[in-house]
Design a binder for these strands. Structure first.
Lengths: 194, 194
DNA sequence: ATTATCTATAGATCTATAGATAATGC
DNA sequence: ATTATCTATAGATCTATAGATAATGC
């Protein structure tokens, strides 16, 4: 029943990847260890050779999800990012979407060890979107403020839109309004290029 | 052991009020019926004479929390609202704060019956903040868009700030930046008065 | 020999129900 | 007579551990 070291590593990665998806879809309390391990093709007893506890996995899955978002958006400019982020596709597929939007509410009730992972993930995403890339300190401060505002509005729009019933006109209106207004801001205040 | 009709009504209201607070603090899955009833000074068996199920209470507690926010902010203009909403006090007291910010993430995973309560609560809050109060249809549309953008950014800022560790500089920065930028927008685009 | 995985289970917790009780309200 | 509340419990589920197993890797 033992498996190769490569297989062990692959199994562990699959558990983390499944957790990152299932937690985003159903929340930290919405997915049990047994179900998670079954989704990864294993039995639940083996979980504790990979992780000390479910809380440990939560931190690792959050880091994986946040890292994935940063990598996926690394080659987008802010306008492309906003168009993708504030889309119905993103709203309706939380399992593959932004970890901040899907799990920040849950993270707020977790210990600082998990919140620290989120803070790092937020900071990373701000960097990817072009904060701190301006020529001088003052321009940097302004660029960073603009990116923070954009992320907050984008996250808020997705969170509120997802809280509405599936066919609610308000759900779509929130996305459309925020997308238009953010994009309008980047026309007036063009993105800072390095 | 039976109690008067007035007492029954009072007990029920206390259960709903405690639920509205505890759910905001710890999430729908974070509070059990037994603990909730104990917090209301009752034993858990009696719960089911008041509510058909925990899910029924969740809908009613959400409605109560959303209603409370609307009433509390009814006499504030948008600027006073934003100053209060994007404060450390609000961020650090979710149990008495905005239900949208505290529970939208949980609501997204609940059935449409609960999401419908949230959609109504959002719509109500938009109305309180002055959407639909302009003189003509076009001005109304613009005013509504501005309020939606403001709510999304405010909710997103609180949600992200709460996901950061308690002493995180980023948590405070998100609040300060979004507060300043929203207020700046209302200077440039003054609030629509009826 | 080591150890990742499996089966089985302990112990806690959670929602919901059953039946008894006693004060209200017709 | 009705019924809100209480005590007790059923049945499900969840995290974590114990012990057996069998293939890897020294």
């Amino acid at each position: 029943m033992k498996v190769s070291k490569a297989q062990v590593q692959e199994n562990r990665a699959r558990i983390v990847a499944m957790a990152a998806m299932l937690f985003r879809e159903r929340g930290y309390d919405g997915v049990g260890v047994a179900e998670l391990m079954a989704a990864a093709g294993l039995t639940h007893g083996g979980f504790y050779k990979h992780f000390k506890s479910k809380a440990d996995l939560m931190a690792e899955a959050a880091a994986a999800g946040l890292e994935q978002s940063a990598v996926n958006t690394a080659d987008l400019d802010v306008i492309a990012f906003v168009n993708q982020y504030l889309s119905r596709q993103h709203r309706d597929a939380p399992g593959e979407g932004c970890t901040m939007a899907a799990l920040s509410g849950d993270a707020a009730r977790q210990p600082d060890s998990i919140k620290a992972v989120f803070a790092e993930g937020i900071e990373r995403q701000l960097a990817v979107l072009g904060a701190n890339q301006a020529v001088d300190a003052d321009a940097n401060k302004q660029a960073r403020a603009l990116i923070i505002e954009t992320m907050a509005q984008a996250v808020g729009a997705i969170v509120l839109s997802r809280a509405c019933p599936d066919d609610s006109p308000l759900a779509d209106e929130i996305l459309a309004v925020c997308r238009a207004r953010i994009l309008g801001q980047y026309e007036r205040e063009p993105e800072v290029k390095p």
